[in-house]
């Protein structure tokens, strides 16, 4: 095989076949995928299904704490998980740029396979296209996923009521800062938090403790998710700066670069709103899971001002936390 992707790898001919078989089918190692049919056929894995899709265009494709492949699996697993679903099947489509090193593609496929195995999700169908040099950025990946929704679970920000508690599973901004520093050539030791959240989400829901809504605060960060909650629930979200976990490295880098950690992307964090009386149980369950070790209540929903997120700063004054406006960051997910 060639050591770089050629346009012919996307032609549908021999090279396409060898790429698909020797890289993807071999890595993903799944009986349904190995049939090489145009579709995967399977029995419905449950009564209530969740279905999601997402595209990954991150640059750089390898970053501290992960790579685009791990991200593409975790992202879809997490989108299912925060809906209360356990991931079962996934698709994986690749748009590869002519000239991309085949070793990179192999490494990415390997990383996807490993992550999928850890998540217990099967990659059962996929596609590969090759675009001319200069028309892509090494590789773009699209994944879709099907998950089985846990019995009796219904989550929506519209259920949020004043007095409910806001909980975050750990430090915010790690992924966004890892990408920024890697791109900018800064030597700040921050790793992406990229991780699958399905177990943590299941741990939380198992408590049966009045969870109203869950999201993974990716692009746009915690600030954006809380604004979405406030908009949908038609109430306000009050958070306290000193309660929000942020790594010192991230905080320091934010000061230097002029960023706000509330707007930085996360890829392994979960924010949820739950009834106040259930929070002890939820926090206890979260803290038993390594991904929720630093879980903390960061504030409460309140009556007003409607559709606003209000932050009480470390100095004790209050300000509105807006939605992210304009282009703040490079391609981060």
């Amino acid at each position: 095989m060639e050591d770089r992707i050629l346009l012919a790898h996307g032609s549908g001919g021999k090279l396409s076949h060898s790429l698909i078989e020797e890289v993807f089918v071999k890595s993903f190692d799944d009986a349904l995928l190995a049939r090489m049919d145009d579709q995967a056929v399977f029995l419905s894995p449950g009564a209530m299904l969740a279905f999601t899709t997402d595209s990954y265009v991150i640059s750089p494709i390898f970053f501290p704490g992960g790579d685009i492949g791990k991200l593409a699996v975790c992202g879809t697993v997490n989108d299912l998980a925060v809906g209360g679903a356990l991931p079962v099947y996934m698709s994986a489509s690749f748009i590869i740029e002519e000239g991309a090193p085949l070793d990179d593609i192999r490494r990415i496929a390997g990383s996807m396979a490993k992550t999928a195995r850890e998540c217990g999700v099967r990659i059962v169908t996929g596609d590969t296209k090759v675009v001319e040099r200069g028309k892509g950025d090494t590789v773009f990946i699209n994944t879709s996923g099907i998950g089985v929704v846990r019995d009796g679970v219904e989550l929506s920000p519209s259920f949020i009521r004043p007095g409910d508690a806001i909980i975050i599973s750990g430090t915010v901004g790690d992924h966004g800062m890892a990408i920024l520093t890697k791109r900018g050539g800064l030597e700040i030791p921050v790793e992406s938090d990229c991780a699958p959240l399905h177990i943590l989400a299941a741990d939380i829901l198992s408590t049966g403790a009045g969870v109203k809504a869950m999201r993974d605060p990716t692009r746009g960060g915690l600030a954006t998710v809380l604004n979405e909650f406030a908009d949908t629930a038609d109430c306000s979200m009050h958070i306290v700066e000193t309660l929000i976990p942020v790594r010192d490295e991230v905080r320091g880098a934010c000061e230097i670069l002029g960023f706000d950690p509330l707007y930085l992307a996360n890829e392994g964090k979960l924010v949820l709103v739950a009834e106040r009386q259930g929070t002890d149980e939820i926090l206890a369950a979260m803290r038993k899971n390594p991904l929720g070790r630093n879980a903390a209540i960061i504030g409460y929903a309140a009556e007003g001002p409607k559709k606003k997120v209000i932050l009480t700063t470390a100095m004790g004054n209050r300000r509105i936390v807006e939605k992210l406006s304009g282009e703040q960051l490079p391609r981060i997910c």
């Binding site: 209050r318 300000r319 509105i320």
Partner: peptide, 27 residues
């Protein structure tokens, strides 16, 4: 005039006076 639709530079720049008032002094 808002950060997502600035009419003048004081709303554009992160150091601009209008941006500072908009971001921090509207509660």
């Amino acid at each position: 005039c808002r950060p997502d639709a600035p009419q003048g530079p004081c709303m554009v720049s992160s150091e601009g006076t209008c941006a500072a008032y908009y971001r921090y002094e509207r509660v």
